[in-house]
Amino acid sequence: MRLSRIATIIPDAPAQMPAVTLRRYALLDRGSYLHADDVPPPAGALALAQTTTDRALRIASTRLLVFEPGDYLLAHHDPLHGDHRVELIYDLSPAPAPSQVRYRRGRGAVFFVFPCTPGAACVVERDPTTQSYHTYVSRLHAGASIVRLVIQLVDT
């Protein structure tokens, strides 16, 4: 089986918060968060993913996710993909907060963690068993806001 080859953090990847209308997702056995779909990707997003992975890619989808205290996105809400797609996440949070994106294979151990780091990004090559989840944001951190722009890319 081909496993993910690249899972890396790019420390300096600033991007602008797009102007969007957020809607709340609230099927609570899957997730609790605000989202906007099909948002315009940052300039340079495609180039960043292609350079990092050395693959010819195109953007398949974009989604802005906002997590407030009490919010989360569970692993079984993250669909499996058999096309070895690449996931690029920009962290647009206004300030660091105790929240992570964690990647695992099946129900196995977490193999990559992207902590909330404003101005950073991560690039992950997914394999068919890869699932990610966004950890619960504690209500003990009132005012926390975690903003992630998730871009999925597939081979051209």
């Binding site: 056995d29 569970l74 619960y136």
Partner: peptide, 10 residues
């Protein structure tokens, strides 16, 4: 303890 939880599930 503070910060511990069990999210919605069956």
């Amino acid at each position: 303890r503070p910060g511990h939880y069990l999210l919605p599930h069956t």
